[in-house]
Design a protein around this nucleic acid. Structure first.
Lengths: 357, 357
DNA sequence: TTGTAAGCGTTATCAC
DNA sequence: GTGATAACGCTTACAA
């Protein structure tokens, strides 16, 4: 066994005690000074402050947390930071939490329920004061069980899960999809395709309802074959596959509603591959504004909402809950959606030359 | 003063003591069981385990941290999560840190040195075990001072700061820019514009060196007027402004190197606004691959590197440092860059019809 | 093999 | 107004 000569230089942290000794007072007094509480004689106060500065001492938050059994940290579990929606939500949450003296600890689930479960347990052991959560599968019993065992309040984003003492923040996907579909119907479209994620979470269901409602309002029947919804992840590959399939149908759609952040890339790629022109051959509406939607030609009409607001509202809700203690009832905050009209939609007649099929 | 009846139901946390009592053993034994250490009689062990399960007890990490003076948390300070580069870095760092039992706590600086300073102090009070950091301004003395006062090791990403016991991870921007510039020169370009961020950090400087070196190799003199570098943030607005300026010059460039994640959007917008065609009127190379670069038409040639790797390598470096203790010397990890050729570049003659100026 | 107790750094309660 | 001390929940010498 080798003994390093420098092995013993473990400089132990300076503590209240050091400050107290230097200032010639007791630890209690030092504590009262930093926490600006009680009456402390100005003379003593300044002596203590001088000592604090000269030793560069700040109270250990670990010890503070230990004492009042609260870490002043909030966990945020999301599926994937590479999705700019989640990145914005985290940014939104962080911006309000740090202002309130809380720290954000993050965890990616990568859409694994098992990861979600273990992160929840972990945050519990760390005595997180709260959790902001975008559950992958709203129905997963293991995750739900962990959640209800948890000792901290939870705010869900974009999910419709009711567990005790949890609130939720959602975007108004119903309204957004309703508007988008109405717009297409108004342009004269009757065969409108819907590509969207599955019905296993709030977002997919709300969009489906909006889509249906817009048809119903106009006395139209949605074409069921044109509804491409998957219980799995709605990624670019899914968008590509489904678009190709739709374009190759006879009785193919005259418009596509691609609702899901990652779909646009796949949809555009499939249109390119099949030489399908937008909006001449097909109209397109996507969700979640992006550089891509804005700068591709033609620019793509989108249903937009603020992911940042989803995160910041979730944080506000959680803080409110933390302040209110027990007299608090779960509530829901709805973030608005809007439709941004660009050049990717036209009437269905508008030059529908035979496709390259 | 109102007294809520439920005010007293502060269910105090179950502790080792509860488990010990239930199992009929001492707290030490319980601790030895959870930490799978020492010899514990199988009989006793199983009694303890049963008690743990029935009480649903897990050791409080707060107390553990308190005891061994380590929070098993690593801080990550970046400027802005809305920049997908930072999001990927965070994802990369988080993926290796959680695997090693550390938690990531995040902080946005929004490019404010003051925020950076206070986050460093905060992480110090929280007794973070380490910090991963993308400093906004490498030269800021306040931040540097906080950093050197800090009690934890630091790994810098994309910065060239040498403080004691810090390592760094950088992408090979010199090489990437060298290759890109060589490529343009090889196509026949002689008036190449460079739009890039300032020289106040490693990235800008490395790119500038690569740009210069490629010219030197070919015995060419860079056209200084065409170098648009700013000490401030290189955002889309900057890209737009500088592109317009470049396009309106006489002796205007035949190619633009837009090096900076946010520039592309502005450059493309400016080209649109001035009806400048790519690559017929001007060739373009950007940095950091994106959906936009890939799917806009023509697709844009880019210098690419993995931001995820920057983050994960930084985490590895930090973990290595944490494991190695004192016998560790600061080191640098270089992540490779590559150039992805797409359709945005052509020879300078290639149809340079008078621009729409 | 197991129990006991000190100690991690703070703050709040109680004397003085 | 200030000082001493218990307590937060855990781990680890050390004692038995």
């Amino acid at each position: 066994m080798s003994v390093t000569s420098s092995a013993k230089n473990k400089v132990s942290r300076t503590t209240v005690r050091d400050v107290a000794r230097l200032a010639g007072v007791s630890v209690g007094t030092v504590s009262r000074v930093v926490n600006r509480v009680d009456n402390v004689t100005p003379l003593i106060r300044s002596r203590v402050e001088a000592a604090m500065i000269s030793l560069n001492w700040k109270p250990s938050m670990l010890a503070q947390n230990m004492r009042d059994q609260s870490s002043r940290m909030v966990g945020f579990i999301f599926s994937d930071l590479d999705n700019p929606l989640f990145a914005s939500m985290v940014k939104g949450a962080e911006s309000v939490l740090t202002k309130a003296g809380y720290q954000l600890i993050v965890g990616s689930s990568n859409d694994s329920a098992e990861h979600e479960r273990s992160l929840i347990e972990l945050f519990g052991q760390r005595q997180a004061d709260g959790l902001i959560f975008t559950m992958t599968d709203e129905g997963n019993p293991d995750v739900l069980a962990s959640l209800s065992r948890a000792s901290f309040p939870v705010v869900m984003i974009e999910r419709e899960v009711t567990i005790p003492s949890s609130g939720k923040v959602v975007a108004d996907h119903y309204e957004g999809t309703l508007q988008a579909t109405r717009y297409l119907i108004g342009l004269g479209h009757r065969r409108i395709a819907l590509i969207t994620g599955g019905q296993n979470n709030f977002v997919g269901r709300a969009r489906m309802r909006g889509f249906m409602q817009a048809h119903r309002e106009h006395g139209l029947e949605p074409v069921l074959r044109l509804i491409r919804s998957d219980d799995r992840i709605a990624d670019a590959a899914f968008g590509y596959r489904e678009t190709q399939l739709l374009l190759s149908m006879n009785g193919r759609p005259t418009a596509i509603l691609a609702l899901g952040r990652k779909l646009l890339r796949g949809v555009l790629a499939a249109c390119r591959a099949t030489c399908t022109r937008i909006p001449e051959d097909i109209s397109l509406i996507a969700t979640n504004d992006s550089e891509l939607a804005e700068l591709v030609q033609p620019a793509v009409t989108v249903v937009r909402y603020s992911a940042f607001d989803l995160g910041s509202e979730a944080a506000h809700l959680l803080l409110h809950r933390l302040g209110a203690g027990n007299d608090w009832s779960p509530s829901t905050i709805v973030v608005p959606t809007e439709i941004v009209i660009r050049g990717s939609c036209a009437g269905p007649g508008q030059g529908s030359k035979g496709s390259a099929l």
